[in-house]
């Protein structure tokens, strides 16, 4: 068999599969976003920007996109806030069993999403762990309703689920800082906090940004947390898309909103990649 033939016969199945079951579907929702619906809600092929006009003119759509973005920023910020001490502790304070601890932070990533979300139902519910504990300890005398089925519980769940995604790149960034740089800072008279502020944090910033971006993007696309733990007023943009493809059955509009989410995500990823590149001063040759 000729080399080029061998090469393409190895690649062909994957390429065809991805084309048919991934690339074309993505292209299709782009096309579908220009379709129209008739008065019975049936999708009619066509070229119209009606869906985009509706998406931009109705605050339910454009407003929810921005609200979701704000939630996503909040989630990303909280994840970073939790990840920093965790990653710092493992990278700089722990001497033995580092690999074990690294495994411990990456393990929850792979454990079923639904179970991890469900756990918060037990913890935050009206008769759940937290409320019954608070009453048992006489801190409150009746259950706090706001804990579950609210934006609060949705955010808590997302932060919980996404923290490992953020902690891992931050930990990796911390580990990549040559120990001699930290020693040099101490040698020149800097205490732990100054060393963190002036050396560790700036050098780990690309890792922090990349972790934060993960959390941001994944929150933008999440529809399960609000569905499982959100209250009547908790609405994330993905839930709207899910509704437009489900009960509301307005596929062109659903596709248009989906494309808008994608564009926003590409924008975020682009900005993040650029700032990571700009801020990364740790090159392999400076070690």
């Amino acid at each position: 068999m000729k080399a080029w033939l061998r090469k393409y016969s190895l690649l062909l199945p994957l390429v065809v599969w991805l084309l048919v079951f991934l690339v074309l579907p993505y292209c299709f929702i782009f096309i579908q976003s220009f379709f129209e619906t008739d008065s019975f809600g049936k999708t009619i092929p066509g070229v119209s920007i009606d869906s985009y006009q509706r998406a931009f003119s109705n605050s339910l759509y454009i407003g929810t996109i921005f609200r979701t973005l704000i939630y996503a920023v909040l989630v990303a910020f909280l994840c970073i806030l939790l990840s920093l001490p965790l990653a710092y502790w493992i990278a700089f304070k722990v001497k033995r069993n580092k690999t074990l601890l690294y495994t411990l932070i990456s393990l929850p990533l792979w454990v079923s999403y639904i179970i991890r979300a469900y756990a918060w139902k037990i913890i935050l519910g009206k008769e759940g762990l937290l409320n019954t504990f608070l009453q048992w300890a006489h801190i409150t005398d009746k259950p706090v309703e706001y804990f579950l089925y609210s934006t609060f519980s949705t955010i808590v769940c997302l932060v919980y689920i996404l923290t490992p995604f953020v902690a891992i790149p931050i930990y990796t960034a911390f580990e990549q800082i040559p120990k001699s740089l930290i020693e040099a800072a101490k040698d020149l008279g800097a205490g732990s906090f100054t060393t963190f502020r002036k050396i560790i944090f700036p050098l780990a910033l690309p890792g922090i940004i990349s972790g934060g971006t993960f959390a941001l993007v994944l929150t933008m696309g999440d529809f399960l947390s609000p569905l499982l733990l959100g209250g009547p007023n908790t609405l994330f943009i993905s839930n709207i898309v899910q509704n437009l493809f489900g009960t509301s059955n307005d596929r062109p509009l659903g596709s248009a909103v989906g494309i808008l989410i994608l564009l926003l995500i590409f924008l975020i990823l682009g900005i993040a990649a650029r700032s990571e590149k700009k801020l990364s001063s740790l090159k392999s040759d400076s070690r």
């Binding site: 993505y26 596709s255 989906g258 994608l262």
Partner: peptide
């Protein structure tokens, strides 16, 4: 990419 977009894209196509 967000699972929701992949999901609805596959559903449609």
């Amino acid at each position: 990419l967000p699972g929701i977009v992949t999901g609805v894209a596959m559903l449609s196509f």
